[in-house]
Computed example of a mutant assay.
Amino acid sequence: QSNFLLVLKMSIFVPIKVYLRGILLHYFIQKKSAAEAHRILVQTFGDNALSDTTCRDWFRRFKNNDFELEDKERSGAPKKFQDKELEQLFDITGDRYRLQLMRLSRALKEKRPLYAQRHDKVILLHDNARPHVVKRVKTYLETLKWEVLPHPPYSPDIAPSNFHLFRSITHGLADRRFHSYEEAQKWIDSWIASTDMSFFRRGIHVLPERWEKVVSSDGQYLK
């Protein structure tokens, strides 16, 4: 009975406000408009981007030589998050991740029907990000009867995007300079489209061996 190795590296990155404001300041210095900066943020961060109105407000501050990115102190007691509130936030992102797993399960049944017919096992590798390990996600994975591999604390050595894809892209980016987000995106799209499928298969095929090495070395980096 063969196993189907499923590699799922879904990093859920939610940028903090100060980080986004720093990006706005960068584009302000580059003499871009608030509208341009907002459009780039939306393309990059989607629903987590600052609103158009907020971008314009910050550009007005910058024009008035106010470059303080932290929120100014307000009167009254500061907002303090309790553990229960944090758990609710994690539940929200956990629900989103569970929805992704549901879609993935359906896609596997549609695109790989033989696995379901032969009752082959799906082996899932994902990291220990909080949304990946909340109770409702664990419970759903149990209903799928997928085998979840242990994952050491953050280790790029078992992320194909890191040890295989990004390394090759970095070589291609040597000495290149982009003048806009669109130009960089166009280059990346072109690079992926022109790369043979065998390249991506190699990254997946070497993963089992790399995973065994990382786990046996207790998460130490590979040379």
Rank of each mutant, 00 (worst) to 15 (best):
D175P: 00
R210M: 04
F178R: 03
R56Q: 15
E147R: 13
L222F: 12
P208G: 04
W191F: 13
K145H: 11
L99A: 14
N3H: 13
Y221K: 13
K111W: 07
T54Q: 15
L144S: 00
N64T: 06
D52L: 13
R202D: 08
D175E: 14
A107Q: 06
R60T: 09
N3E: 14
L101D: 04
K111R: 13
A37C: 11
P150N: 03
H26E: 08
I169H: 00
P160E: 00
V134A: 03
K145Q: 15
L99I: 07
L125A: 08
P152Y: 12
E73T: 07
F4W: 09
L125C: 05
S194R: 02
L124A: 07
Y27F: 15
R177M: 01
K84T: 01
R112H: 11
L50N: 05
W146T: 02
Q30W: 07
F28Q: 00
H38V: 12
E36A: 11
Q88Y: 10
R60E: 15
S161D: 02
A49L: 07
T93C: 03
E142D: 15
T143I: 07
K80S: 08
E212I: 05
S161K: 01
R112N: 06
V42T: 14
P156N: 04
P152L: 07
Y115D: 07
D57W: 12
L5D: 09
S180R: 01
T139K: 11
L8K: 04
K9L: 05
V14F: 07
H179E: 07
F166R: 03
Q185W: 08
S217P: 01
Y154C: 01
E73R: 10
F59E: 01
H132C: 08
C55M: 10
L50D: 05
D218E: 13
E147W: 14
K223Q: 10
A77T: 10
I23A: 04
S51M: 12
S75P: 14
D83W: 10
H171Q: 14
S155C: 15
I12L: 14
R21L: 15
L104P: 06
K186Y: 01
I158H: 00
E147H: 15
N65Q: 14
G46W: 10
R201A: 06
H171I: 06
D175W: 06
H26N: 10
P208I: 11
H205F: 12
H179R: 05
